[in-house]
Amino acid sequence: MIVREKMPLKRIWPQAWRRLLILLVFDCTVAVIYSVFHHKWISLNGLPIAPLASALTIFLAFRTNAAYGRWWEARSLWGALVNTSRALARQFLTMLDDETEDPRRPPLRNELVKHQIAFAHALRCHLRKQASLPEMRTLLGEEIADELSAYKNIPAAINLRMGKLLRQARNEGMLDSFRWTAIDENLTGLSNIQGACERIKNTPLPRQFEYLPRVLVDAFCWLLPLCIVEDLGLVTPIASTLISFTFIAADLMSREISNPFDNTIHDTPMTALSRTIEMNLREQMAETDKDRGWKEPVPRRVRDVMPVDGFVF
């Protein structure tokens, strides 16, 4: 996600330069043919270019809205994940009766919270098509990571493990049916968030939304110099290229934000959000451990994620 105030031109230029260069050559050719060689027939001054531009703007705005809708939905889903994670951690830490628990093993409530932290990290990796097992080894231990390696969908497997741990807690008399139902609702919420993120990741914008605006922008940019050459003469290339750049940049920008889970600068900042979840949950866990007199053998220290060069990932 871009958090800097200015968007440098060099980020648009690499994708736009080829189209703009070809258009500039065409614009110069048209201007020279009209103004130097006096071939007046090349001018299409009668063509209503302004209504065409308006129609194109509507198309582009429609596509930009659809792309922004996907980007915002992705961000909202991760916001919901932060909230659900905090709520689940609170439930794990306060609803489990641990008086009957074996004091020699790590508390079950902490295991559940660690699984919740791992879920957020695993979902991030899953959406970015990145290997999550190295992280799972540190967060959950070698044995559980090896068990998870058998699954293709690791976040779903972690969710299942949380369900199994809750059943264990119930069997050990730490949880009654009412509290189990309440926690289970939030676990289902996690599955829903994951499913919605996967839907955005796996379903691209309809191809018509991708293709048609691009073709129309190209058609407009090719017609533009022919329509303005009579009025502007040799200045046509400058005006035409500037106007073309505006439309091409709008076309490119909307295309880039339509995929919010692609490890680019336009991404939902999943690294920062999963780190926030981890920090919050570890704080809550440490506070509860202090009250109950439990000390984590190796406490993990995590830092906040800062923007890199104005971009937060």
Binding site: P134, R275, R303, V305, P307
Partner: peptide, 15 residues
Amino acid sequence: DALLQSFFAEADNYP
């Protein structure tokens, strides 16, 4: 140093 610490932040979770 601040940039390096925040780049690829998830690598902090690696063993």
